[in-house]
Amino acid sequence: MATHSVHVSGIAPTTTQAHLHDFFTFCGTIDAIDFKAEGGSATIHFQKSSAAKTALMLNGGTLDAATLSVTSDTAHEDEEHTGTGADAAHHIEQSDKPRAGIAAEYLAKGYVLSDSILNRAIEIDTKQGISKRFLSYLTTLDSTIGAKALGPDKTVSGKVVETVGAATQQARAVDEQKGYSKSAGDYYSRALASPLGGRVRAFYTTTSKQALDIHEEARRIAAEHKAAAASAAPAAPVAAPAAAVETKEKETPVEKA
């Protein structure tokens, strides 16, 4: 357990263990947290080394208005993501995701990460590459959605210059008819099914990006969360129109003196 751990200091007095868990769970599955509230420090134990490596990326991040110091005595490395079969295509863990994507999730949730942290995420992705498991997952989604929206053997990301406009319009029309992006199971399938599908796929499959690209992806994720929350919220009762109230008042008989 201790092998995949990071040490966190500079924790705000208002921060609870639940806050720490919510913050670091974006990195991957947490096994345990040793929290010393009085000293403002904690040790986060992760299930995977790759999750600990992502946590180190967050050194200098902000939680509850305090700047965190995230360090480790161990040099954590990513695991080999060799699976490319059916299981890899349908089951993605948080630690499988590109670091730039994880950083975008932090921003979408409202956490504050400096551009230096975002550039650190991009640097890790550039050196490490995108995991084969995650690429297999997106490729499967890409072809599945493309077949539904554009026809057999089509992919959302397949962009022939002469037909990309028509393909986008056709994908949008099919989505409006079948509601595929609304019924899709997760953010990635909904995003790929949207007219922005090609751009989303490029963000998660290439390492050539800038901090601004992460901010843009964060806005897309936040908009997705907002839309999901709005659709899940119960409809508010409709108030009677003011005109109708006034009419009733005017129709009430008045006794003569």
Rank of each mutant, 00 (worst) to 15 (best):
Y180T: 11
T252I: 06
V200E: 12
S136W: 02
A211H: 14
R120E: 08
T29N: 10
D125Q: 06
F23S: 05
L63F: 10
T43H: 01
I117D: 03
T252W: 01
G101Y: 12
V156S: 04
H215C: 11
E246Y: 06
I44P: 00
V245T: 14
A37Y: 00
L63W: 11
L107S: 07
G198D: 10
P237V: 13
S9V: 08
Y106S: 04
K209R: 15
T71R: 14
G158N: 13
G179V: 07
S131G: 03
T54F: 09
Y188G: 00
A51V: 03
T207Y: 06
E79I: 02
S189A: 14
K159E: 15
K256E: 09
R199D: 15
E224H: 14
I30S: 04
G198H: 07
E217P: 02
F24N: 05
K53Q: 10
T140K: 15
I11F: 06
I92R: 03
A166E: 14
Y137D: 04
E249F: 07
K154A: 14
D87V: 10
D73N: 13
T126F: 03
G101N: 12
A89D: 05
R133S: 04
E93F: 08
Q170P: 02
K48I: 00
Y111F: 15
C27F: 04
T163R: 07
Y204P: 01
K182M: 08
A121F: 04
G28F: 07
A167Y: 05
H4N: 15
A223L: 13
Q17A: 10
Y111L: 03
T14Q: 13
L118N: 00
K36D: 10
N119Y: 01
P253E: 02
T43F: 01
I145N: 04
V112S: 08
I33E: 02
Q170A: 09
H81P: 01
T54M: 04
T205I: 09
T82V: 05
V254I: 09
L113K: 02
V160G: 07
L107Q: 08
T3P: 03
A211K: 14
G151I: 06
R220Y: 12
D34V: 08
T163S: 14
G10C: 08
T67E: 15
V245H: 08
T163D: 12
T62W: 13
I30Y: 02
K250E: 05
V70F: 10
L138V: 15
T163H: 11
S208D: 12
T54E: 00
A2W: 08
D34W: 01
V200K: 08
K178E: 14
G110W: 05
T139I: 07
G185S: 13
V164L: 14
E251I: 06
A147W: 03
K48T: 03
V156Y: 07
K127R: 11
Q94Y: 01
Y187K: 01
F26E: 01
A244W: 06
P241W: 05
A232P: 06
T29A: 12
G185R: 10
L212W: 06
S50D: 03
R133T: 13
T54L: 10
C27I: 06
A147N: 14
E162F: 13
G146K: 09
Q177P: 00
I102K: 11
K248C: 05
H21A: 12
P98V: 02
V161A: 11
F46R: 00
M57L: 15
